[in-house]
Design a protein around this nucleic acid. Structure first.
Length: 578
RNA sequence: CGGGGUGUGGUGUAACGGUAGCAUCCAUGAUUUGGGAUCAUGUAGUCAGAGUUCGAAUCUCUGCACCCCGACCA
C-alpha cells in the first residue's frame, strides 16, 4: 500500500486527551473513528489488524478441529421465549429488538447466540456418536450498553468470536472447557498479548456454574479489578473473589450485658471509630438494608438485611447470587426508615423485622462484644453477643468484597494483590441450562434421550485489538506484534522526489510486495522526513526501512520499532530479512 | 436511568453583556527537506429553539448532542 492511497491518514493532535493511551493512539493513527457512542468505523488500517486477529482465531480453531460456521444476527423471539431470556434481555434493555413489518413478528439483534446454536443442536444432534460437537463463529454482536465507553472496550456493536460445545455428560463438558482454555491461551499468545491471565469470574447473565475470564493486564486501560495471589496461582475478578479476612484479636469473655448508647452524628463506621477510639472497626457490625428485584416490579421486590464486619464492604454480585435475585441495590432512605424505624445508618440485627431475611457475612462469625446499630436514630448497641442478644444465624455467607491485603482463599498464605485488566475472553460451563429448556437431547447407548451438556466461549475481537495496543506501545505510538500488524514493514524515503531514493524505495516496495510481505510505502513528496518518522512511530509497523543519504550506494537502514535498533544493509540483505 | 460536566471554523482553543480572535488542518504559490519546516494568500465557526436586553457566544428556559462517575459486559 502506498501512503498517498491510504485514507484517511493520521490525525495527530486532533483527538481529546481524556482517554486511555490505546484508544487515543487508535484514533490518532487513523485505525478507528467513532460514528456514535459505542459504535466505531474500522478504517482501512484498523480493518487490516482486525482481519488478522480473525484469521488467527479461525486458524487456531481449525487446528483443534473446531467447526467454523456463521449464525444469523436476526434472532426470532420464539427462541428466546423458550429459554425465558426474552423478558430478561429486553427488560434490562440489553438486547435491541426489531419487528417484522408485515406479520409483527419480533426479533432480537444477536447479543449472543446460545438460543440459535442450541436450536441447531436440538435439530441436528441425534446420537452420542455425534458428540462432542463444537461450533464457532465470528460475528457482530449488539448490546444496548447503558454507557458505552473507552473506545473499543465497551461498544453497542462489536465483533465477537463465539463458540459453543455440546457433550454427553459433565466429564465431556469439562473436557471441552479445558480445550478452550488451551485454545484461548494459544490465541492470546499469537495475537501478541504480553500479559494475559486466567481468573475465576461471575457468569452474569449467561448463567451456568463455572466460568473463567481471560484478562489482559493493564493498569491504565483495564476496567476490571483482579485479585491475584503471589504465592499460589489463585486469581479472580474482584466481583467473584473470595478471601480470608484478617481476624481481630479475639475477645476472651462475653460482656455481662449489652447496652444501648446515644451516639450522635454517627452514620458511618468512620464516625463510630472517632466516637469510640478504643473500639476497632473489626469489632463493629454494620447492617445494610437492601432491596432485591425492584426491577421486576413492586409485587416481586423485597427487603433483606446484611450484617457484615465494619471494615468490609458488601459484594453486591455475591449477594445477588446468594438470593438468586435479578437485581439488588441499597434500599432507598424512606424504605430503610420504614423497615428499621430509624434513619439510614442505625440499622442493626436486634429486633429487626420487616425484612425477608438477615444474612450474615462470614466475617461476623465468632465475634462477641460487638457494636451494632440500635434501630433507633442516633443510637447503637454496645457489648452485643450474638446468640444471646439476637438469634444466632443458622449459617454464614460469603458476601464481602475481597480487596488487596486479604489472605488468599486457596493457599491461605499469600496476601492478595490488586491489578487491573481488560476482559478479552470468557469461557462458561453451562451444564444443561439451555439444552433442557430447548429440548436439545441426544440418544444414548441405552436408547433414551439425554440432555446435552453445553459450554460457551467468547472473545471480543474488536476489544482485543485495543487490548493489544494497550500492551504494545510506547510514548510515540503503537508497536504492533508482527502477527497482527497492519503492515509488516514501512518504507520511508526521506525525500521521495530524490531520483535515487525514489528508485530504491520503489524497488524495495515491489520486491517485498512480490514476496507477499504486507508493506507500506510513504511516498508523500512534500513532507519532511521528520513528519514521516513521527507518523510511522504512531502507526507502529514492527519494521521500518529508511531510504536516505546512502540510497545511491544501495544502502538503507532497517529499524526495529520496539527496540529502536538500526542496522545499515544493502538492498538484497534487507529484502532477505523478510 | 440517576449524578456531574461540556457544546465557538474540519480539529484544538480565546473573547467583562458591546468589532467573534488565535493555532492547526485544507487549498494555492514560493523557499525548504534525517525526527511533526518557513513565508504569503485563501476557504471555513458561536448545537437548535424561545426569552431577557438598545445589544447575547456570554444571562434564563426548553430541547438535542457528546464526555465523565454508577448498575451492565466480550
Amino acid at each position: 500500500m502506498r501512503m498517498t492511497k491510504l485514507f484517511p491518514r493520521t490525525r495527530y493532535g486532533e483527538v481529546g486527551a481524556a482517554m486511555t493511551a490505546a484508544h487515543s493512539f487508535l484514533l490518532k493513527a487513523g485505525f478507528i473513528k467513532q460514528l456514535a457512542p459505542g459504535s466505531y468505523i474500522l478504517l482501512p488500517l484498523g480493518f487490516r489488524v482486525w482481519r488478522q486477529i480473525q484469521a488467527i482465531v479461525w486458524d487456531v480453531m481449525e487446528s483443534h478441529d473446531v467447526q467454523n460456521l456463521q449464525l444469523p444476527i436476526l434472532q426470532p423471539q420464539e427462541l428466546w421465549l423458550k429459554t425465558e431470556r426474552w423478558d430478561k434481555y429486553t427488560g434490562t434493555k440489553v438486547m435491541f429488538e426489531t419487528t417484522e413489518r408485515h406479520t409483527g413478528a419480533k426479533f432480537g439483534l444477536a447479543p449472543t447466540a446460545e438460543e440459535v446454536v442450541t436450536q441447531l443442536a436440538a435439530e441436528t444432534i441425534d446420537s452420542y456418536r455425534d458428540l462432542p460437537v463444537i461450533w464457532h463463529q465470528i460475528g457482530w454482536k449488539f448490546r444496548d450498553e447503558i454507557r458505552p465507553r473507552h473506545g473499543l472496550l465497551r461498544c453497542r456493536e462489536f465483533d465477537m468470536s463465539d463458540a459453543y460445545s455440546f457433550d454427553r455428560d459433565q466429564a465431556g463438558m469439562q473436557k471441552s472447557f479445558d480445550l478452550f482454555r488451551l485454545i484461548y491461551t494459544e490465541i492470546f499468545q499469537r495475537v501478541g498479548l504480553t500479559n494475559c491471565i486466567n481468573v475465576q469470574a461471575d457468569s452474569g447473565a449467561i448463567g451456568g456454574k463455572g466460568s473463567s475470564e481471560f484478562m489482559a493486564v493493564s493498569e491504565e486501560g483495564g476496567e476490571d479489578i483482579l485479585l491475584t495471589c503471589p504465592t499460589c496461582n489463585y486469581g479472580a475478578n474482584a466481583e467473584k473473589a473470595t478471601s480470608v479476612v484478617p481476624t481481630p484479636t479475639p475477645q476472651s469473655k462475653p460482656s455481662a450485658t449489652m447496652r444501648l448508647e446515644y451516639t450522635p452524628n454517627t452514620r458511618t463506621v468512620e464516625d463510630l471509630v472517632k466516637l469510640f477510639p478504643d473500639l476497632d472497626a473489626t469489632r463493629m457490625v454494620k447492617t445494610i438494608i437492601l432491596t432485591a428485584d425492584e426491577e421486576l416490579g413492586p409485587s416481586q421486590s423485597y427487603q433483606v438485611a446484611v450484617c457484615i464486619r465494619g471494615d468490609l464492604e458488601i459484594n453486591i454480585i455475591k449477594l445477588k447470587n446468594a438470593l438468586s435475585a435479578q437485581s439488588v441495590e441499597p434500599a432507598k432512605p424512606d424504605v430503610v426508615r420504614a423497615v428499621t424505624g430509624a434513619d439510614v445508618g442505625f440499622a442493626g440485627p436486634i429486633g429487626l423485622q420487616n425484612v425477608r431475611a438477615i444474612l450474615f457475612d462470614r466475617s461476623v462469625e465468632g465475634l462477641i462484644n460487638i457494636l451494632c446499630g440500635g434501630n433507633k436514630t442516633e443510637h447503637h448497641f454496645l457489648d452485643v453477643v450474638p446468640g444471646r442478644d439476637f438469634a444466632a444465624p443458622e449459617c454464614y455467607f460469603d458476601l464481602h468484597l475481597a480487596v488487596a491485603g486479604h489472605t488468599c482463599p486457596e493457599c491461605k498464605m499469600g496476601l492478595l494483590q490488586e491489578s487491573h485488566g481488560i476482559e478479552v475472553g470468557h469461557i462458561f460451563m453451562l451444564q444443561s441450562l439451555y439444552t433442557d429448556k430447548m429440548g436439545a437431547t441426544y440418544k444414548g447407548e441405552d436408547g433414551k434421550p439425554h440432555p446435552l451438556w453445553m459450554g460457551c466461549y467468547g472473545i471480543g475481537t474488536t476489544r482485543l485489538m485495543q487490548a493489544i495496543v494497550e500492551q504494545n506501545r510506547d510514548k510515540d505510538g503503537i508497536i504492533w506484534p508482527v502477527s497482527v500488524a497492519p503492515f509488516r514493514v514501512e518504507i520511508i524515503p526521506v525525500k521521495y522526489d530524490n531520483p535515487d531514493q525514489r528508485k530504491v524505495s520503489d524497488t524495495l516496495y515491489e520486491r517485498l510486495a512480490g514476496r507477499g510481505i504486507p508493506v507500506l510505502l510513504d511516498d508523500r513528496e512534500s513532507l519532511q522526513g521528520g513528519a514521516k518518522f513521527k507518523d510511522a512511530d504512531l502507526i507502529g509497523c514492527p519494521w521500518r526501512i529508511t531510504v536516505g543519504r546512502r540510497a545511491a550506494e544501495g544502502i538503507v537502514e532497517l529499524r526495529n520499532r520496539r527496540t529502536q535498533e538500526v542496522t545499515e544493509l544493502g538492498l538484497e540483505d534487507v529484502i532477505n530479512r523478510f
